[in-house]
Design a protein around this nucleic acid. Sequence first.
DNA 1: TTGTCAATGTCGCATTCCCGACATATTGTA
DNA 2: TACAATATGTCGGGAATGCGACATTGACAA
Lengths: 239, 239
Amino acid sequence: MNSPNIQNTSEQKFWYLRNHKLFSTLSNAEIDDLCIITKHKGAKKGEAIYFGEDLQNRIFLLKKGIIKIVEHNDKGDEVIKDIMQKGDLFGAIGSDDSINKESAVTISSEAIVCSFRISDFENILSKNPDIALQYFKFLGLKLKKIENKYTNLVFKDVRSRLIAFLNDWTAAEGSKVGFDWVVENYLTHQDIAGLICSTRQTVTQLMRDLETEGHIKYDRKEILIHSSLLAKTERPIKS
Amino acid sequence: MNSPNIQNTSEQKFWYLRNHKLFSTLSNAEIDDLCIITKHKGAKKGEAIYFGEDLQNRIFLLKKGIIKIVEHNDKGDEVIKDIMQKGDLFGAIGSDDSINKESAVTISSEAIVCSFRISDFENILSKNPDIALQYFKFLGLKLKKIENKYTNLVFKDVRSRLIAFLNDWTAAEGSKVGFDWVVENYLTHQDIAGLICSTRQTVTQLMRDLETEGHIKYDRKEILIHSSLLAKTERPIKS
DNA sequence: TTGTCAATGTCGCATTCCCGACATATTGTA
DNA sequence: TACAATATGTCGGGAATGCGACATTGACAA
């Protein structure tokens, strides 16, 4: 989907929201009240879109690009909470207080983002029960996703988590080629490590293992996933 | 708070919901439509309230007692997702599909639970924007809680997680005694291990360490937490 | 082409903590 | 009181994986 020729910010924001499932039914006036900023980032790869405090009172809608929501600890280690794609909401989802240490970093070469104040968003929700219900579903999904990540982390070892991640990725974005699947690879081993809570070295090692076992094949641009990996979560029996 | 003399299930359910923050504004008719079951459990300690499938389409409200939301893997290992107390909502929060492997197990000697269908609940929400907003806040809090658990698990070692857990517990339920805090202890080391994702032995060991270090003092009934533990998350410097 | 930087590949040691095994202590119950 | 069942305490070996160090490869720009 390419955006039409858009002359100014105002028209852009209408176009952005109208094409989003959650906001498609809103009137011009409502959109005008809600979306007070349309933020464009000709952001370089690796550039942060927002930091701690900004995030407190805003919800963001990613219109274009890929970003990662990350959190760092004191030592500088990074966990990737989530990867956001076109159409995803992020930011202070569902809460409006307390400290948040997350930041959003662009992975793609460009990212375009709209944002709204939480209070404005809540206002829209309370006046549009249908949108509210959809938003409930969205929150439920988010909740389930993170709960799933949590149990994965507890129950599974790194290898299983990597395989589960590859399977999810394939399911979400892969295209079938013969008996295999291809996924465009915009993530480094470092990123993947952050996503499955491991280290770069371990990810590299396991990717190599999976390749020599014949389950995947990869370079820096794409990953080819053999169907033998699908639904495979156990480690091979040791000899 | 003791419940008044209640003669029948119908009166009970009115009383239960009226005394809950989220439902206090509902009319009799609305409550009647919503809460189609009032489930009483003279449940023994350790008895499961519901299993997988039951949970799919219901939201539960805990009126009395303490329960744990747990999930098991194939090997029988247990993670405790959450501990629920009087007034808490649990079940298929925010989602109405897919498989859920959780179950709810009583920790206290008795538990009383109401439940409603998700569709009925959604109906109430869409007709009562105020309740919907409160429910958004609730979901947001839940989301933040689990995200916090997740980052804790990634960034902190077992000792730090245990200390963080004790601090949380103190903050939530502790009462001050001199310079210390007392928490009624209804959890076994096994339970605590499940909550902070560790093992019984490790928890026992660390609890003993903390006691010899003078930070806590405990028996099976209560835990005395010295103020020296508050805000302490780092391990002592090794000699 | 060459130089630079980021990403990937490989190795081995160190550490954390799981896990089995078994002892002791406490609680509930006949 | 005695017995069973559950909870707590203690120890040591071993597996998973973190982590530093360094080599190699690939991408991009001058």
